[in-house]
Computed example of a mutant assay.
Amino acid sequence: HNFPEVLAYRDQVVARHHLRLRVARVQDFIDDGRLRERPDGTRNPLQTVPLLDAITTGRHDAVFGGGRRDEEKARAKERVFSLRDEFGAWDPRRQRPELWSLYNGRHAPGEHVRVFPLSNWTELDVWQYIQREGIELPAIYYAHSREVFSRDGMWLAPGDWGGPRGAERLQLVRVRYRTVGDMSCTGAVESEAETVASVIEEIAATRITERGATRADDKLSEAAMEDRKKEGYF
């Protein structure tokens, strides 16, 4: 359940740079019975099977991700080159030392590595780089008025995934998104930051990571992300 603004931005980038885009869709796996919808409506954990299928089908040796160590406890255990076994699973005990920024990408047939070039960056580093390079972003990352509803202390957007429900009511709130994922578990934060400079100022003053403030799926348990990574999640 992706945000329309994000998909539109993706397609614009693909068209502008004449890229070849291949998308593994959770919906396709639900339609043919390989996956089943969850009772809570979120599809974020369901991404693992399509991801592993795409890696196997494409015979990819390395898959790049944008994870950072400051986002979440399990990601703080990751290496820049994260070894995954033939089932796509992550074992923290098998991770290799990366002293002096030396990386080992060797792997056995069927295995692959997940590569996280931004591991040692912070959210502030990312936004300062965006400012320096003048990178265009979807408007969803900046303050805008949006209909949202409150659930478990988070502002969530309505959608086909099943919200709002019961006594939950839509409200027009000035918000922005610090991270973007499945609409069912990605919360917005109240904000007036409409420019890169004001976002940087806002981030510099906060003491909560973007996932800690905006991702409901990480609140399921202390080990929620680590359990999913062991199953093959990014």
Rank of each mutant, 00 (worst) to 15 (best):
V175P: 11
A204T: 15
N2G: 05
L137N: 03
E72P: 07
D160Q: 14
D28S: 14
T186R: 06
S101V: 05
R68D: 05
Q47W: 11
D31H: 08
A54F: 12
T179E: 01
L170A: 08
E192S: 14
D53K: 09
I203V: 15
R25M: 08
R25P: 06
T179M: 13
A89P: 03
R174I: 07
R178G: 13
N2V: 02
F87C: 03
W90S: 03
R151W: 13
I140A: 01
A74H: 03
G232Q: 10
E133L: 12
V26Y: 02
R59P: 01
A197T: 08
P117C: 13
L99M: 06
D85C: 02
K229E: 09
P50Q: 06
V113I: 10
S82V: 06
R68E: 09
K230Q: 07
L172M: 15
D40G: 10
W155R: 05
N44M: 10
E98R: 00
V113W: 01
A224W: 04
E78G: 03
G66S: 13
F149N: 01
P92R: 00
A54P: 11
A205T: 15
Q47I: 14
R176S: 15
E5L: 02
I55C: 13
R75T: 10
G163A: 06
H17M: 01
V180Q: 03
S145C: 14
R79F: 00
V175A: 09
L83Q: 01
A188K: 04
L124N: 14
V26G: 00
W127T: 03
M183W: 01
S150F: 05
T206V: 14
H144F: 10
A54V: 14
S221L: 02
F149H: 02
Q131E: 14
E226P: 00
N120K: 12
D28A: 07
E5R: 04
N120D: 08
D32V: 04
T206D: 15
L7I: 03
T42K: 04
K219A: 09
Y141A: 03
F3N: 01
F87T: 07
P164H: 02
A193G: 13
D28K: 02
R165M: 04
E194R: 12
V49I: 11
S150T: 13
I140P: 01
V199H: 11
A167M: 10
D227T: 07
R94C: 04
Q47G: 07
Y233H: 12
V23L: 06
A62M: 07
P45M: 06
V49T: 13
Q128K: 14
D85L: 00
H112S: 04
N44C: 15
H17P: 02
G166C: 12
I140N: 00
H18I: 14
R34W: 12
A204G: 12
D61V: 08
I208G: 13
G162T: 06
E201W: 14
V148W: 00
R178A: 09
L118G: 12
I140C: 02
V189H: 02
S221E: 11
S101T: 12
R22E: 09
G67V: 10
E136Y: 01
W121L: 10
T48I: 13
R228H: 09
R20A: 05
H112D: 03
G166M: 09
Q128M: 09
L156K: 00
K219H: 15
K73L: 10
E202M: 11
F64S: 11
E5V: 01
E222K: 08
G163P: 10
R106M: 09
R43Q: 14
Y177L: 04
W155P: 07
G153C: 09
S145Y: 11
Q12I: 02
